[in-house]
């Protein structure tokens, strides 16, 4: 009876390419992760988890096209599933994932951060990917995944998100993203 064996040695070339990717991706995607999660520590944890998973799939992902797009999708999905897992734990010290607009401080950056957190996670992802990462609607659809990843869905999610942001934000130049291209 044969016992099959695989070699799990890391390929030096593959690791070098992956390392180079991580150094670029960390800076590029950590800010996105922070805007998605609302918390810098959670963002680092989420991004690191996604990069670890990406390492396992690196031979396939690096050949198939754009590893940044793949990582972006993992971040969006990872943020949603991360909260589903955490919700099962009793976290008495955990800050809520929704801002209370009535108690929000007036400082504009904090106000924007809380307003973003008040959005449902998919709408938040659409806003961040469109307005921060500057992705096209098609690219945002790909990042959201196939189940909701149609351009029409992105448009409607974007419309609802912008309407909600206008309600939440004080008129200090942020509530009217004039002529924002859809």
């Amino acid at each position: 009876m044969a016992v099959s064996e695989t070699t799990t040695r890391a390929s030096p070339l593959s690791d070098a390419a992956y390392t180079a990717f991580v150094e670029v991706a960390w800076d590029r995607h950590l800010r996105v992760a922070t805007l998605l999660t609302g918390d810098a520590h959670r963002a680092e944890e989420l991004l690191q988890d996604c990069l670890v998973e990406l390492y396992v799939r690196w031979p396939r992902v690096s050949k198939s096209g754009d590893p940044h797009a793949y990582l972006r999708r993992m971040l969006v999905n990872g943020n949603v599933s991360w909260w589903r897992r955490r919700r099962r734990e009793l976290l008495t010290a955990e800050t809520p994932d929704r801002a209370d607009p009535l108690s929000a401080p007036r400082e504009p950056h904090e106000e924007l951060r809380r307003a973003l957190l008040a959005l449902p996670r998919q709408q938040r992802a659409v806003v961040v990917l469109r307005h921060f990462d500057d992705l096209t609607e098609k690219a945002v659809a790909a990042a959201l995944g196939c189940t909701v990843g149609t351009v029409g869905t992105v448009k409607s999610q974007h419309f609802r998100a912008m309407a909600r942001l206008r309600e939440l934000l004080h008129p200090v130049g942020l509530d009217e993203p004039k002529e924002a291209a859809l």
Binding site: L35, P108, H109, H131, G173
Partner: peptide, 11 residues
Amino acid sequence: DPLSVALRDLA
């Protein structure tokens, strides 16, 4: 877009 500028400032 002002929202884009604001998000970048925040980030």
